[in-house]
Amino acid sequence: MAVIARDGYVDIVRDKVENFHGNQLVYVGWDDHLLFSAAQAFPLPPEMPYQALVSEVMASVFGDHPEFAQIDWSTVEWVLDGVSFAPDMEKSLKDNGVGHKSLIRFKTPGLTGINGTRL
């Protein structure tokens, strides 16, 4: 439904991809690790290899968690925008289907957070 306003609205999409200087927004959330209270937001080039997302970008934030170093990446379960997927680590974010404002969630089987508390 259209906005209810007397004078109408100018068409401003504040977060369109063009506003991010060549980057796109990507959100990454680590399931069952609520020590990070929310998924994290990153501005990333669409050409960035998925491997770099994992070992540089994600490590820069999630690396502070003691379980991050224990992750067996071959068993990680990935969900992209609500759908399970198997990323190709060598390919870019874009070629893996990661778009502007995509949400990537990952689950790390066997790792259940600090003392098993899902933190």
């Binding site: 906005v3 401003i12 200087h21 927004l25």
Partner: peptide
């Protein structure tokens, strides 16, 4: 969903930081 034209304009602080 009732008024998307209004909220696509939202000034979200995190995104604004990334926009410079």
């Amino acid at each position: 969903e009732h008024e998307p034209e209004k909220y696509v304009q939202a000034w979200l602080p995190v995104h604004q930081i990334f926009q410079g």
